[in-house]
Design a protein around this nucleic acid. Structure first.
Lengths: 336, 336
DNA sequence: CTGAAAGCGCTTACAG
DNA sequence: CTGAAAGCGCTTACAG
């Protein structure tokens, strides 16, 4: 169907040398192998003339590496992961790596099958945002010494490289910001999840509340990942009925967004009826009135570090590197 | 480094047969090749016991196909393309394809190098949102019979499969919606681009204006892709100074978003000072006050059709399929 | 029913 | 300085 591509052999035949020689000069080993200047020129010329394009699949099979990275996120259409993907793409490209991605939908089975598929396709390593329940599978990868760095979340039972936010600090500071602004009846809205990033965000909130003598107001409202809309509405009904909340802290970008819809639906005034702090930036936060104060993650660093560490591992480093990034609170109008 | 994976040969040795036989039964050709029931069982058992995982790279080299699709978009972190990527991922997965992506940044050189890279990695076909100036390159792909479907935009000089929006109709209807609502001094804000999707959107606007005797108000303000913020502000300064605009139609999602920032900065009231229609949905449109009326593209169909057509081509179809999708105007408050 | 063998397009010790 | 050859892990005519 597709016209036959020109191979090393074609060039070798054209010039009248062995494929070995062609391979050497095209891979820049001419000097090392002390190939004669004359042949180098001839070979290069032929390669250009025939428009030679190396078959990376053949190369990969022989070398046992593909120069591709697998990226497993919860959902590539989620702006947080889309942005992360872009940073990773660029950083990978700088290092001559190509990236193939998959969305797990926070579903452990799907995540595993995605990883297995990519593994069979011989990706050199993985950047994965692990989902709940996938610990066993990641452990088995680690045992097989598949290069992997966890991103956004990690698995506390497991000692792998990772790069994550200081989630505890992020929500702790957020609570203190509320306090500074005079709010005390602060609730948190989080995903129902045992994943460490969520638990750490919750812990940061709870401990800050306790620390400031607000244990009695410390309540975490839980949302199920696959029922975000319904659960969020239910939560705001509760908040209204209980009449015991003057501020709410959202634990993720998607929760913040959904929360804003609920707040608007209830016609709550921000910050008069309720103060709000969101997670990650989003254009919608800018147009909400007032603009949302939010916890900002250093996406760029997160993506770049992940790639850097992964490539080191692929190159043979046995070092486990665990990076914890600092968030920044971006203050706008939603806390008065 | 990584422990040695088990290969066909290992299973063959284990069972005491040839690799050919193992390959047959593992690929479901046992019946066809009339392999004895007994051996089939033995081989399957051994495959499970040894946890055999076929090396797809070897398979790809031999078969000349990789079961992977290349996706080239302007920017994967742009919500429009991120969403598209997700639909394509799911649809590809259903057909046992994996997708590798790249962002061209609307840069022709980058797009070409991305495509060449993926081609060397032997992707079976491409879905690409072509950028300005890349016609030659796409033509050369088409000549080499590389399966390709253009998405979101197409190249009028070139007869390839594509799936795009009926862009002309989309903006034409938008103008008529403005008219219906009593606005006549309608300006359009578009990218400075000769790409057909942009030109069609512009044509739809212009012809609708002419059709309704508003040629004198027909003005397209142009924004450069890499200077979106500055150009947008300049445009709104002009609009203010000229004092001859009561409605503005944005030509893309990113332009709409940036336009909203400019409108807010100028403290323009919508729709009293200026009515607005945006392109594609976005959460920010929901929280802008009033919520934005916008032209909605059928993302799902666009992604699914692209994959379907591409896979048909990969399987050998020579048919050129050109799909034109209909947009829908989602009416909210920004036009009164 | 089954096996020996070629070959996909490379890279890389090895030998001279 | 250069070439013959093995081998990466598969699939698939071909022969029996």
């Amino acid at each position: 169907m597709r016209e036959k591509k020109v191979s090393l052999k074609d060039i070798a035949k054209e010039v009248g040398v062995s494929t070995a020689l062609v391979s050497y000069v095209l891979n820049g080993l001419a000097k090392e192998k002390r190939v004669s200047k004359e042949l180098v020129d001839k070979i290069n010329k032929a390669a250009v003339e025939l428009n030679y394009q190396p078959n990376q699949i053949a190369r990969s099979l022989r070398k046992g590496s593909t120069n591709t990275l697998g990226l497993i996120v919860a959902d590539i259409s989620n702006p947080f992961f889309a942005q992360l993907a872009r940073v990773i793409e660029d950083e990978a490209a700088k290092n001559s790596y190509t990236v193939v991605f998959g969305s797990s939908d926070e579903n452990c089975k799907k995540s595993e099958s995605l990883i297995d598929t990519l593994l069979n396709r011989q990706v050199d390593g993985f950047i994965v945002a692990p989902t709940e329940g996938c610990t066993e599978h990641i452990i088995s990868l680690a045992k097989r010494e598949v290069p992997i760095v966890l991103c956004d979340r990690y698995l506390p039972e497991l000692s792998t490289s990772h790069v994550v936010l200081n989630n505890y600090q992020a929500t702790y500071s957020a609570v203190e910001h509320f306090l500074l602004k005079g709010f005390t009846k602060i609730k948190m809205v989080a995903y129902k999840s045992a994943m460490i990033h969520m638990q750490e965000r919750i812990r940061g909130y709870k401990e800050a509340m306790v620390k400031h003598g607000l244990a009695k107001h410390s309540v975490v409202k839980e949302v199920r990942y696959n029922h975000i809309k319904n659960d969020m509405e239910k939560i705001f009904n509760e908040i209204e009925n209980e009449n015991d909340t003057d501020a709410v802290l959202f634990a993720t970008n998607a929760l913040s967004l959904e929360g804003l819809y609920a707040i608007r639906k209830k016609n709550l005034r921000v910050p008069e009826d309720i103060a709000v702090i969101g997670f990650d930036g989003h254009e919608a936060f800018d147009f909400f009135n007032p603009a949302l104060t939010y916890i900002q993650q250093p996406m760029d660093e997160m993506g770049k570090e992940s790639v850097r560490i992964l490539i080191e591992q692929i190159k043979g480093s046995k070092k486990i590197v665990q990076v914890v990034l600092k968030s920044q609170l971006i203050e706008r109008g939603s806390c008065g």
